[in-house]
Design a protein around this nucleic acid. Sequence first.
RNA 1: GGGCGGUUAGUUCAGUUGGUUAGAACGCUUGAUUUACAUUCAAGAGGUCAGAGGUUCAAGUCCUCUACCGCCCACCA
Length: 937
Amino acid sequence: MSTELPPQYDPKVVEEKWYDLWAKTPLFHARPEPGKKPFSIVIPPPNVTGILHMGHALNNTIQDILIRIRRMQGEEALWMPGTDHAGIATQNVVERKIAKEGFKRHDLGREEFLKRVWQWKEEHGSTIIHQLKRIGATCDWKRERFTMDEGYSKAVVEAFVRLYEKGLIYRGDYIINWCPRCQTALADEEAPHHELDGKLYYIKYPLKKCQVPSVKCQEKHKKSADDSGEYVVVATTRPETMLGDTAVAVNPTDKRYKEFVGRTIVLPLMEREIKIIADPLIDKKFGTGAVKVTPAHDPNDYQMGKSHGLEFINIMHPDGVLNANAGDYAGMDRFEAREAIIEDLKERRLLEKIEEHKHAVGHCYRCHTIVEPYLSKQWFVKMKPLSKPALAAVKKGEIKFTPKRWTKVYLNWMEDIKDWCISRQIWWGHRLPVYYCQNCRKQAEMCQVSSVKCQEKDKKLGTCKVKLETGVIVSRTKPDKCPVCGSTALEQDPDVLDTWFSSWLWPFATFGWPFEEQKPEEKKRELDYFYPTDVLVTAPEIIFFWVARMIMAGFEFMGGKPFSDVYIHGTVRDEEGKKMSKSLGNSIDPLEIIGQYGADALRFSLIAIAASGSDIYLSQERFQQGRNFANKIWNASRFILMNVGDGVTGEGIDTRSLKVQDAWILSALNDAVKKITRSINDFKFNEAVNGAYEFFWHKFCDWYVEIAKHSIEDKNTQEVLLHVLKRSLLLLSPFMPFITDEIFSRLPAIGALPGKPGKRIETIAVCGWPQPEKQFENKSAIATMELVFACVFALRNRRAELNLLPQVPLRVRLSAGEKKIKVADAASGLIKALAGASDLEVTAEQGIVPDALSTLIEKDVHLHLFLEGLVDFEKEKARLDKQAADLARQLSSKQSMLANKEFVKKAPAAVVEKEKSRIVELKAAIERFKEVRSAFR
RNA sequence: GGGCGGUUAGUUCAGUUGGUUAGAACGCUUGAUUUACAUUCAAGAGGUCAGAGGUUCAAGUCCUCUACCGCCCACCA
């Protein structure tokens, strides 16, 4: 057999070999297998622009662990891979690229620009897929999908058309979040609010002279500084929007302004006459209680504009530069205009004051530009009807969140769901399947586009003949002519759909839904078999973007949930708690870690750190632990492979000639198998990986392998070594697939595994998951070994304290009570060997031993170390006194516990008994200390 | 403004349904070496479990409040 393992594990060569093999093997291709239980996960498709970061590494390692263990457990495990076209993000990347050549996208034109994006996608789009392979992801690579695939795009169109036909998609003018840099509308979720240190400007709005002057009126109203007349002070954080003001509003119950309502203000700078209106939306306590109303640039103001029939004046171009409606400020950028306006107001003595003011402002989630609330015509999905089954499913527990606390986050959002703006004014994405008949729309133009006011008015009067849908054709395929008037002058809507409008279909569209392809039956069978998927693994940031919407889409289009479990893992942060991101420059590159320590080390450390669902703080050093562990696995295996003889398979243990240590490690292995399996099922990955680590290193290597060295020639010892090694590798393989596969492939007779008789095994990933083996359950072996450990531990401790080198032989006596004598006997040989005792005598005698250091090992078992005059007695006395005092303290606490009648009455009998026997032990121990101490003269 | 999470050893974190003496990793101190592995082995030091109150026979664990840190959501201009 090949035992040519180098003394240090070198991940580079090994990883290259295996990830290549895994990428090509058909073994990870899952198909409907009648009689086999399906298990499926769809990958959160990374953006095509994506470069693997720690978040991806964690996310995909978790999925890979789940897939690997289920596959090993004999389920038909499918991990569906793919990438997301990431509309805005990708468009931005390509725009930046062509900017270097001196172009803007409009210079190239839509078609040419899209050609460039596709070209970019072909060149760079699979970077992240390669990187996933490098961390060992065993996806079903044959099935890789892309959200702009031809088939997938059909699914997107299908979803749009179905919703439109159900009346769940509509178009209209609303205030949406507008990113002036990306120049597109954004959904609410795409414009997260961040708190900024802003300013609150108090501006005087002069009233037009009282038409009907009254004494009362004049008395009440303040005079401005220059005494030129009455005014109202409004407070705003965005003074530039005043150019579009069409009213000032106060609360109807506000006594301060009672007299003002209905009066006219002359809007400064624009010199436009606007009314003072009363609206309950206004908070009397904020600012001055009077608010400027800009219906085209603020959601609240928009509401008021609607209800009060105000004019909507858009003062801004899509790029944030003020337009002709802004008068003298036209051509200025919005923030530039803010400064200019403030200067002008100051000059006119219309600026009362400026206050520091913290407020939350929406930012574009792609480019972090401050978004502008902007009035425009967009497409929306009505979400309320979709949310109903999605709410019910989670409430009923049909879909479970882990950790549980995210359930509430989901429910809160879902209960308060707002309509979803899905149109984007960019080019990269799925174009809306909406066509406009130029002919039909000609007449509609006037009414629909020219002014909102017209629409509103006509609607009220019921005179508007033009329905919103006039000239709008929504169709799965491009129509030849208008179904109403027959005109061929059709134009497709230039907008594309929100990226998330395609990804919300991911759990079923990846299977070919809605099945218009070549072999629909076969595809459909696959969907029937694998849908609903089992677990969705993701980060909390995208619960709203993606998870919630997938649930809604699942019920809407498939009539059932898309997955049963949602596992939310933590966000990867740096040592200071900041989210790791490229823009912050604080990211640790997983590929660098792979280069430095290996992919297994990366996976191991990430999982070991990641407690269920809490955020993960990373630093470089954490990965050393993983590397060290890999090296330990390597060397333990190397040692075993060097020592097992021909014909040893690991499956030929002679149970009749098991030594106590053999029985112990086999029983401990069973415990490890149970524990690790349970932990993974409970999504406690850190617990699972730490359990595997603890078992392999600190039980198997530190104790069993060390003991086995004493009987390494023994064939049964070799069998046990190999038996445990094999199963350990299997247990470790979901976490550290590369090294385990490499070693496994070098084991002798690996075919002789339970369930795989004689079959050549291509990878450990398709072997069976270890089961507890009942014949190896052995409590008494565990008890005996625990005694061994305690004695060896005590003697090593003594050696260190007494400065006795390992070579110095120790003379030891083990005295055990009647019940323990057998165990002590069984343990004695190992204690002797492991603690370097030259002489060990086991006795039932319980008396004190003169000139010996005695230790209570467990109840009724004492260990005596003969001192032979090597000891500093004063030091020993002090030590004994300290220990005795410790015990005395414990004893008195126990005694007062038992003296408490309530405790004896109410605590379970077992607990009380335990305490009682503990008291007996403590008393005996204290007695013993006294005796030993007195033995020191 | 609402909600959620955190506060345990020098550091980063575990700690199951409340039940003996609160664990690990890293770091630190001391010691080992003709070795499977120095990416090793052995031993040690180090904790009033953020603070206060409460429930209980019993609290790191349950409840209330406070402080600090972090996150998410929200149309107070």
